[in-house]
Nucleic acid binder design. Structure first.
Lengths: 345, 345
DNA sequence: AGATTCAATGTGAGCGCTAACATGCGGAAT
DNA sequence: ATTCCGCATGTTAGCGCTCACATTGAATCT
């Protein structure tokens, strides 16, 4: 194991001494090689290799006042969406030469968010991406004193901070209209937790699509994103013979609904059609394959970093941007035309 | 938005000036309050509040030579396992006052790993947790020059670095023996990619359990963890009338197998029994509910951080530790007794 | 030839903080 | 009183690096 922990790390000064130049010259070789003559460049390079020199990023950051690191505040969950967005962020950040520091929050409250933001802020990140999509997030954020630009990723009300998200309302409408177009008189809805902005926007989109079609909106059932809550909602829905179409606010809950229906002998899509939201890698392999709304989380992460990068560069333009990504309806086997005879009564 | 980006941040010196004490005293109030008299403590505290002082972690790190940050190298995937482990690490790190920086690698090659390790190393992390479970990882790691302690999380051959993992062989044996106990003559196997250590260990465990029962081991089918590859494997398996029991190396592929069997009219568990690996939140809601091997990824992350913390504290004991967590068989509806008449021929 | 430019390098200061070593002071010990 | 101790605080130096500004020497101009 080639570990040099014992032997002190080589510093700029060490390299300078070995190469017979000043520290500044070595610094230039590292940061702006064009300003150093080829000959000395060569000599310095050799010294660096020999000593295995690697710049101390921390010292650089201290003196430059920027760390080339972005902080990500994420919600403490192994859910597909946040995890994929984090990945997109990491990838985009790396491409632009940023490091990534993360802080997860376990609850939606003010204090957790403050701690997370401060812990990153104190580490002198150049900017923050927040994937903590609670209704309360934007407000909490406003009351915090921060030192860096922030981009909200996922959802949020514009005006608080620049925000990049996937058009939830659009996605929900797409899903609902699809079911309506299939001949269903109305569409039931299993919603996410009401303190998530995304839940609200999806519910709004569903309601809007129903209204536009002059269809009645049955009261939505609220879940917590988990398959189990979807299962429970499915049980409820199964008792209502009116149910012919369901729009579920995420794929995990849709799986639960599927499972409950299967257990109750309700066939999908023959008796009831189901649409999910997210398009996780698993969704195409559910039984039946799930019709759903695809969200490109990777792209979300990339756009967030790009935006943040711009904000970091010219600190002036803090115009409250709102960048919306188009979701996409993916039609698979869980939706079908409504049969004329009553479904399961 | 209370952003102070324009007004320069308050420094120790500013606080000292306002409180009428020396910088050192302020530093003491922050780090070892016991050494300062209550009276000045009070005064300094007031000055800090007034100026909204927050210590510059970077400057502290530079002078102390430690950053109270750990780096996590993870594989670029939204898979459940790595994502959950990352969460466990973050949580454990936060509890111990560590920040977390991440670097994802997209491919299994040497260069990617080196870049990731160096990029974290250069940011002066105090230690590294690596969740990049390729066969080649350990070797690559050895040839790298690093400056901090490393803990391998997930799997790995002992001896390269301290390692904490879930006992894959044990889990695979548990799964296989369960199927054998149900009366199946042999157990087919859908394996993960052969360049993942975890795949190999699971395959080994499966083979060992078969051998112990003097059962023949059919050639395993290799997938890539994805549901699609599981689906393809399922199609293959469906053609073989001998198949009565399948051990699939992760739940996502098991879902694919389930889907293929369903499509071919093979009933689970009546015709064929299936066991997965991981126990994702979805697994209990597959059709049928999946019997699987539970891995506690959160615990994995916590143990990894705990171990790393110890290594960071006393840099001496680099004894190659190996900490194994026990997996757990979760029996659900996808496994059943083998029927005496031939399954599906 | 002298003045002017430019490219290549060097110098000093300081980013914000803390380790290690002073300093000053009141009170206990002699 | 004198010595000594220990507490509360201050001073100096330096972590590793880059900024802003010299300083060189040679090439270019008039």
């Amino acid at each position: 194991m080639t570990e040099q922990s014992a032997a002190k790390l080589a510093t700029l000064a060490d390299v300078a001494r070995l190469a017979g130049v000043s520290a500044m010259t070595v610094s230039r070789v590292v940061n702006e090689p064009a300003k150093v003559s080829p000959a000395t460049q060569e000599r310095v390079q050799q010294a660096m290799d020999q000593l295995r020199y690697r710049p101390n990023v921390m010292a650089q950051s201290l003196v430059r006042g920027r760390s080339r690191t972005i902080g990500v505040v994420t919600f403490d969950t192994a859910q597909y969406g946040p995890a994929a967005a984090l990945l997109g962020i990491e990838r985009a950040a790396r491409e632009r030469g940023y490091g990534v520091a993360i802080a997860a929050i376990e609850r939606a409250d003010h204090a957790s968010l403050r701690d997370a933001v401060h812990s990153l802020d104190d580490r002198l990140v150049d900017g923050l991406v927040i994937i903590a999509p609670f209704v309360s997030t934007a407000g909490a954020l406003r009351s915090l004193d921060r030192r860096t630009p922030v981009v909200l990723a996922g959802a949020g009300h514009a005006g608080e901070a620049p925000i990049v998200g996937i058009d939830q309302g659009k996605g929900a409408s797409l899903a609902t209209r699809h079911l309506l177009d299939l001949g269903h008189r109305t569409v039931h809805h299993v919603a996410g937790p009401s303190d998530w902005i995304e839940s609200r926007l999806r519910t709004d989109g569903w309601r809007a699509a129903l209204e536009a079609a002059a269809a009645a909106a049955p009261p939505p059932i609220e879940g917590d994103w988990s398959p189990l809550s979807g299962y429970n909602a499915g049980l409820l829905l199964a008792n209502d013979p009116q149910t012919t179409a369901v729009f579920v606010a995420n794929d995990q809950m849709a799986l639960g609904v599927l499972s409950a229906f299967h257990e109750r002998g309700i066939r999908v899509p023959e008796d009831v059609s189901i649409v999910g939201f997210d398009d996780t890698p698993e969704s195409a392999f559910y039984t039946p394959a799930l019709t759903t709304v695809r969200q490109d989380f990777i792209l979300l992460g990339e756009v967030a970093v790009e935006l943040l990068d711009r904000l970091v560069a010219d600190e002036g333009s803090t115009a409250p941007v709102k960048h919306l990504i188009e979701p996409q309806l993916v039609i698979r086997a869980s939706t079908g035309r409504m049969r004329q005879d009553h479904p399961h009564s």
